[in-house]
Simulated scan of single mutants.
Amino acid sequence: MAFDATRVCNNILQRAFDEDVPVTPMKLQKILYFVASEYAKDTEKPLLSEPFQQWQYGPVVASVYSEFKPFGSGSIRRYAKDSQGKAYVVNESKNPRLREALDRVWPVVKDRGAVPLSRITHLPESAWRKAFDANERYIDEDDIRLDETYRPKLGLD
């Protein structure tokens, strides 16, 4: 089951707000990418119902960009909301694979800045790099699942 990207971001932000960890929109995008890749490795399925795009500073989900664009390079101070102004998270107790991916990624990224995380997504042979080199707008789901380039840099190997 693929999830709404902004809901998964709210799960990430819930951890950030609980621990008083600042997260900028760019940092959120990179964390979301790493979580999506880890989830896909565990399940053989894409995490999100929307694709990652290949942007200059790394993988980006357009709806997440639109939702948090008002924060610019500053810290996000609220959850993503739906058209009725309600914020939702994915129920992690009903989705243990998502919880496991979040629990694996969050501790190793929370204290890193957006730019260093962006550099990690740009490594040779990364899913982002493959899309960039092929001048593709979207990052291939299989490449995201198979991307191992970030794991040593984050200490996940």
Score class of each variant (00 low, 15 high):
residue 127 A to V: 03
residue 115 V to R: 11
residue 113 G to C: 09
residue 119 R to T: 10
residue 138 Y to Q: 05
residue 113 G to L: 06
residue 112 R to V: 02
residue 134 A to C: 04
residue 135 N to F: 03
residue 127 A to Q: 02
residue 134 A to I: 05
residue 125 E to A: 15
residue 122 H to K: 07
residue 113 G to H: 03
residue 133 D to F: 08
residue 115 V to W: 12
residue 132 F to N: 14
residue 116 P to M: 10
residue 121 T to S: 03
residue 142 D to Y: 12
residue 113 G to P: 08
residue 136 E to W: 04
residue 129 R to P: 11
residue 129 R to I: 13
residue 126 S to V: 01
residue 130 K to D: 05
residue 141 E to R: 14
residue 141 E to G: 05
residue 126 S to K: 00
residue 133 D to M: 07
residue 114 A to E: 12
residue 127 A to L: 07
residue 129 R to Q: 14
residue 117 L to S: 00
residue 129 R to G: 05
residue 133 D to A: 03
residue 128 W to F: 01
residue 139 I to V: 12
residue 134 A to L: 07
residue 138 Y to N: 08
residue 123 L to F: 04
residue 137 R to V: 11
residue 119 R to M: 13
residue 115 V to K: 09
residue 137 R to W: 11
residue 136 E to Y: 10
residue 142 D to L: 13
residue 135 N to G: 04
residue 119 R to Y: 14
residue 130 K to C: 03
residue 129 R to S: 11
residue 142 D to K: 14
residue 126 S to Q: 02
residue 139 I to N: 00
residue 132 F to A: 09
residue 134 A to D: 09
residue 119 R to A: 09
residue 139 I to C: 04
residue 117 L to W: 01
residue 127 A to R: 04
residue 121 T to K: 00
residue 136 E to T: 03
residue 117 L to A: 02
residue 120 I to G: 00
residue 124 P to D: 14
residue 114 A to C: 14
residue 122 H to R: 10
residue 133 D to N: 09
residue 142 D to F: 08
residue 129 R to L: 14
residue 125 E to G: 13
residue 136 E to G: 06
residue 133 D to Y: 05
residue 114 A to V: 08
residue 129 R to H: 14
residue 140 D to M: 12
residue 137 R to Q: 12
residue 116 P to G: 13
residue 111 D to M: 15
residue 121 T to Y: 01
residue 111 D to A: 15
residue 116 P to A: 04
residue 139 I to K: 00
residue 139 I to D: 00
residue 127 A to W: 03
residue 118 S to I: 03
residue 122 H to Y: 13
residue 142 D to I: 10
residue 116 P to D: 10
residue 129 R to A: 08
residue 138 Y to H: 09
residue 115 V to G: 00
residue 134 A to Y: 01
residue 115 V to M: 11
residue 116 P to Y: 12
residue 138 Y to M: 05
residue 117 L to H: 05
residue 114 A to Q: 09
residue 114 A to M: 10
residue 130 K to R: 06
residue 142 D to C: 09
residue 140 D to A: 13
residue 132 F to K: 07
residue 136 E to A: 10
residue 125 E to H: 15
residue 127 A to E: 06
residue 142 D to T: 13
residue 117 L to F: 05
residue 117 L to N: 01
residue 139 I to T: 06
residue 140 D to R: 11
residue 133 D to G: 11
residue 128 W to E: 01
residue 123 L to M: 05
residue 142 D to E: 10
residue 129 R to V: 08
residue 127 A to P: 01
residue 116 P to H: 12
residue 138 Y to F: 12
residue 137 R to E: 08
residue 119 R to K: 14
residue 119 R to N: 12
residue 138 Y to D: 10
residue 134 A to G: 06
residue 122 H to V: 06
residue 125 E to R: 15
residue 128 W to S: 00
residue 142 D to G: 12
residue 136 E to S: 07
residue 113 G to D: 03
residue 142 D to A: 14
residue 129 R to D: 13
residue 118 S to D: 02
residue 112 R to S: 02
residue 115 V to N: 11
residue 137 R to G: 11
residue 126 S to D: 04
residue 122 H to W: 07
residue 125 E to Q: 15
residue 139 I to E: 00
residue 142 D to P: 03
residue 111 D to Q: 14
residue 114 A to T: 13
residue 120 I to W: 07
residue 124 P to W: 12
residue 131 A to R: 01
residue 124 P to M: 15
residue 140 D to L: 11
residue 121 T to D: 00
residue 139 I to G: 03
residue 128 W to Y: 05
residue 122 H to N: 10
residue 135 N to D: 03
residue 119 R to I: 13
residue 141 E to A: 10
